[in-house]
Structure formats: C-alpha cells, structure tokens
Amino acid sequence: MQKKRILIVEDAAYMREMLVEMLEQEGKKYEVVGFAVDGKEAVEKYKELKPDLVTMDLVMEVMDGIQAIGEIKKHDSNALILVITALGAPEQRKAALEAGADEYLWKPFTVKNLSDVLEKLLRKREE
C-alpha cells in the first residue's frame, strides 16, 4: 500500500514536530511531504505538492485556515482536509466544515485520537 502523502499546515513549530512524530508512530502509512506556516503558503504548497491529505490549523498569520480551506477546495474539490485546532466553539467548527473541511480534531489530542480520525477519514474517502 502506498503511503499517504500529508501536508502539515501549522504555525507552531512544536506542533509541527509533534505531528510528524505521531504520524511516524503509524509506521508506513503516512509520509509528511511538506509544511506550511500560514494559509497562503498552504495553498501554494498544496498546488505544488498535491498531497493526499492536509492537516490544517485555523489560527495563523497572513491567511487563516478557513480561507485556506476555501482556496484549496476551490483548486481541488477532492482535497482531503483535517482541521486540527484549539478553537472549540461549535460555530467555529461549523464554519470550518462549511468551508470544506472533512474532519475536525480538537486540541489537545492523543496519538490515538489522531490515528483514529485519519483512518476514519481515509476509509471514508476509499468508500
């Protein structure tokens, strides 16, 4: 099975690092192909790398996550986007989903939470 190529969009370096660690824990399933620290970069990187999945933070400089989701979905409506954020209000969740996010993972989360949601997301896509 081919590794799923993942683009990590996250402004905090320690979070990026941790996400890489967690994805590595899942062994051969995922491959981090790139990082972006803001929405604008995320859109550019998506176009460049064409990843299978994007983990998207919402609160970022230059362009926020919601906008970036919109942009990416506009470019590729099949893009898979997992929102990973500390913002937990239902209206914020709703806004993200409406912009086109496929799943929502609320900070803080365990490695299991992450792998569960990823699996759920990929399974859904395969179906």
Partner: peptide, 21 residues
C-alpha cells in the same frame, strides 16, 4: 485566551500519549 491556553495543552496531551507508547 481560551485558544492560547488550550494550544499548549495540545503538546502536553499529545506527547504524553506518545510517551505512553
């Protein structure tokens, strides 16, 4: 503040779960 307070929780919980492994 909520956002900023929650954000540092993420690596605490996340790394703890990694450590557990």
């Amino acid at each position: 503040a909520y956002h900023e307070m929650r954000s540092p929780l993420a690596p605490i919980v996340g790394y703890a779960s990694l450590l557990e492994r």
